[in-house]
Design a protein around this nucleic acid. Structure first.
Lengths: 223, 223
DNA sequence: CCAAAAGTGTTTTCCATACACCCATGC
DNA sequence: GCATGGGTGTATGGAAAACACTTTTGG
């Protein structure tokens, strides 16, 4: 081995901030369901940060890609791998891990509600507004905040939002997801005009009760 | 040391894509100078990729921040450290370095023309349109392309462009830099209206010859 | 006078917003 | 009929683009 490689060098790990949308069923019929944005966390069972919550991820093997590492970690803990992933940021603070110098390549992940449900019991989905820095391991709270900012900005100029939705959805569902993430309301008429070029209508309809059926849409592939 | 740390793990290096603007002096007076966007490259003197051009950067020490590593590398090779830096992306391909598994935390750097001149002789400034993939070491060509895309998109919604300009500048200079980076022309009247909120006028003027003097502006600090 | 670059004013087009209204369903 | 949510049309204000024009300098 070359001499430059004979030195103590930083460890490398991955962390994934996986978001999903939770639809709260309405109390009675005739009421729009509430939605919330949630993040996937595991409880650490060893020191350091024992009993604190942490992001899925782990140490990167020497012959492994970060995306594969994350998928492997997610698959081990559930039987799922339908998760969209994109590199978020690499966190390098000197003391982010008390054991050693560990840099973390963090990813932003998005998963639809059906996939997210498969994790129930094996991990915990936290409402992003309900997590506090004190409950989280390492610097994972600030990683989540960075991911949230990225998500909020990217849904304005990309079509990543469809990774949070089922294959077919109504425009009201889509609008709810936007508003849940951005935290502000829009008027349905204006919202529709804004996103109509991103979606493809189908000939199917919902069959909810107590009001007019809603047309179902799918993601439009844009080139 | 904990047992998880007894394994062969990837090496970590940094790479900085440092851009600057070169103003070509006009042939005679009475002619606007041409500008070009340039990137700082060093010639490698050892294998692998001997005699190819590479980005400034190097292996990250175990107790070192990536930004400090890059500043150190830049300082060693010139006496300068006035360079704005922002993390770009972490490149992780398995075979990007033939010697070993090396992940690279890449940074986007911006430097004004006066600072850039101090590097002349110690490194080479290449016009971004003049570099070819074959002349570059490792995956540095694709790192540069990623940096270019990031630069082009970020000058549209941030004020990082002022890092490429001197303290005081004319609106025409500013417009030239925008147009050089984006590769498309704009009308002076419209351009001024678009950026007027980002700049602060001074009471000083240029004293070029053969035409009306131009007012000098500085960056406006926005809160 | 002219050439060159700095700088301004006006019109037109487009798009985001606001708001009023109609439609389809279950009860 | 009514309540509820789905869906459309139109007016308005402001930004962006296109274009014509004036100003200031040196030669």
């Amino acid at each position: 081995m070359d001499s430059i490689f004979n030195y103590e060098h930083p460890f490398v790990c991955t962390d994934a901030v996986v978001f999903s949308i939770k639809t709260q069923e309405p109390d009675s019929y005739r009421k729009l369901p509430d939605t919330s944005l949630r993040v996937l966390l595991y409880k650490r069972d060893t020191d350091p940060s024992q009993n604190k919550w942490c992001l899925p991820g782990g140490f990167l093997n020497i012959d492994e890609l970060p995306e594969d590492n994350i998928c492997r970690k997610l698959s081990v803990k559930a039987e799922v791998d339908k998760c969209w992933l994109e590199q978020l940021y690499t966190f390098c603070d000197l003391n982010r891990d008390p054991r050693a110098r560990v840099i973390s390549i963090a990813y932003l992940g998005l998963m639809n509600e059906a996939e997210a449900m498969k994790y129930e019991g094996k991990a915990t989905w936290f409402d992003v507004h309900a997590i506090s820095e004190a409950d989280l391991a390492f610097d994972h709270y600030s990683i989540i905040q960075t991911a949230l900012e990225r998500l909020r900005s990217k849904i304005l100029y990309t079509n990543i939002i469809f990774n949070l939705l089922p294959e077919e959805f109504t425009l009201t569902q889509l609008q709810n997801v936007y508003e849940t993430i951005l935290g502000k309301k829009d008027q349905a008429a204006n919202f529709r005009r804004k996103i109509i070029d991103l979606v493809q209508e189908t000939d199917r309809y919902t069959s909810d009760k107590g009001h007019r059926p809603a047309k179902l849409y799918t993601k439009k592939e844009v080139y």
